[in-house]
Design a protein around this nucleic acid. Structure first.
Length: 422
RNA sequence: GGAGAGGUGGCCGAGUGGUCGAAGGCGGCUGCCUGCUAAGCAGUUGUACCCUCCAAAGGGGUACCCCGGGUUCAAAUCCCGGCCUCUCCGCCA
């Protein structure tokens, strides 16, 4: 959420921001309501001042045992008028908030301008793309042939876009979770969290999923709870409505959770395999940063996520998303894409973003600065990494001509010493 | 799900109609004092919004004692509804 006063005072900047994101939201209504609200507020405040003044006099007179009827005459009408005005102001407030909740964050100046994913900029590449002297199989074929991923039974149990891992497939998934958590906690200094997988509306609003993206969430109607689409939601909301200690920033948390996404609107995309599921596993990285160095922290967080791929020796590249392709709340985003041989291209495996104060304002997460003032922290998060897509990358990049799959060295101890599947 | 208790400032905690933005304590900050540390003494210390102003500071005002209504000239305080937390019982991995 942007600050109302900031929009008022930086109108052109905000308009440019919206345009650069291909966001058609108009600010006209916001400006009109903002003016109406302040006008009503002024009127109501003046009447309240009058009412408070008279009420105090009455209090004094009563203490002296004097007659009050003269003073209190007419005050009932004033009181009523104030109530009417307050009601109108509340309506304006709600309307303003509703508008603000739908305005995206302002992209950082370093973000490339662009309309869509074609305009994203590659930042760096790592690792050599593997050469096969046979036609590499897709992870779908490999998974089925090796008997470690059961797509049909996933559908039987829950429907399309659900999957059943079996045997060493399940083991591989679990090994990756542990490997990543260990790396981030032991070597990168993150504290491990295991949050609830169901959260309330306040949490979803705090990180920006609500109100705009309700259609993309699984919702438990009886209890008005939502299945988390990413650990970002519960982990960022850990400090909702809190004041953090400046000296302790940045706070760095990592969490494994399953993620649940309705994938509304993605019909026909990645219908087969592990790439796009309603439920998938992910290890997430979250930071609460001082505003002064949040962009440095983004670089570090991205490096932390990349390190997973380096250890697993999987080729990847990092791209900077352009303004038109960036998520709603992000001021800057790097995507990490891993090489997928069967598709002969890089596919997203992590998305690392700096939300600046966008989420902090929604979720009310502050710190007390040295000058004694309260300021919003900056929040960041990134996948470190998506587990299912890492399985895709391992199966496909580490496959042999005979259909077996080697296990990356770094992972073998987590697999109970297994070096090859199949 | 049933019964009871409770939600007050950064934290703890008092306050049952007006002089309460709110006692007291802790913590924070400033000064004094002691050779250092500790202790002690004095002072100070909420947030948001509006107006003025605009570079900042300052000044004026309003709101906020979980949330939303109501009573009243006046509500932290009285009434109604809701949410949440805790304790006990039930159920349960």
């Amino acid at each position: 959420m942007l600050d109302a006063k900031f929009i008022r005072e930086n109108l052109e900047l905000v308009k440019k921001s919206l345009a650069s994101r291909n966001d058609a939201t108009s600010l006209d209504r916001f400006l009109a309501v903002d003016i109406e609200r302040r006008s009503l507020l002024k009127e109501a405040d003046a009447l309240k001042q009058e009412l408070n003044r008279v009420s105090k006099e009455i209090g004094k007179l009563k203490a002296e045992g004097k007659d009050l009827s003269e003073k209190s005459a007419g005050m009932k009408e004033v009181s009523q008028k104030i109530k009417d005005l307050d009601r109108q102001i509340t309506l304006k407030d709600e309307e303003l908030t509703n508008i603000l909740l739908f305005i995206p964050n302002i992209p950082d100046v370093s973000v490339p301008l662009g309309k869509c994913s074609d305009d994203n900029k590659e930042v760096r590449q790592w690792g050599a793309i593997p050469k096969f002297d046979f036609t590499p199989l897709s992870h779908v074929d490999l998974g089925e042939k090796l008997g470690i991923i059961d797509f049909e039974r996933g559908v039987k149990l829950s429907g399309a876009r659900f999957v059943l891992y079996k045997g060493l497939g399940a083991r591989l998934e679990r090994a990756l979770i542990n490997f990543m958590l260990d790396l981030h906690t032991k070597e990168h200094g993150y504290e491990e969290m295991l949050p609830p997988f169901l959260v309330n509306r306040a949490s979803m609003t705090g990180t920006g999923q609500l109100p705009k993206f309700e259609q993309e969430l699984f919702w438990c109607e009886r209890d008005d709870l939502f299945l988390i689409p990413t650990a970002e939601v519960p982990v960022t909301n850990i400090h909702r409505d809190e004041i953090l200690t400046e000296d302790k920033l940045p706070l760095k948390y990592t969490a494994y959770t399953p993620c649940f996404r309705r994938e509304a609107g993605s019909y026909g995309q990645d219908t087969k395999g592990l790439i796009r599921l309603h439920q998938f596993n992910k290890v997430e990285l979250v930071k609460f940063s001082h505003p002064e160095n949040s962009f440095d922290e983004l670089e570090k967080l991205t490096n932390n996520a990349e390190e997973v791929l380096k250890r697993l020796e999987l080729p990847y590249r990092v791209i900077a998303l352009c303004t038109g392709d960036m998520g709603f709340g992000s001021a800057k985003t790097y995507d990490i894409e891993v090489w997928v041989p069967s598709q002969n291209k890089y596919r997203e495996i992590s998305s690392c973003s700096n939300f600046t104060d966008f989420q902090a304002r929604r979720a009310n997460i502050k710190f007390r600065a040295k000058d004694g003032k309260l300021k919003y922290v900056h929040t960041l998060n990134g996948s470190g990494l998506a587990i299912g897509r890492t399985v895709v990358a391992i199966l496909e990049n580490y496959q042999n001509a005979n259909g077996t799959v080697r296990i990356p060295k770094a992972l073998q101890s987590y697999m109970g010493g297994v070096e090859t599947i199949g």
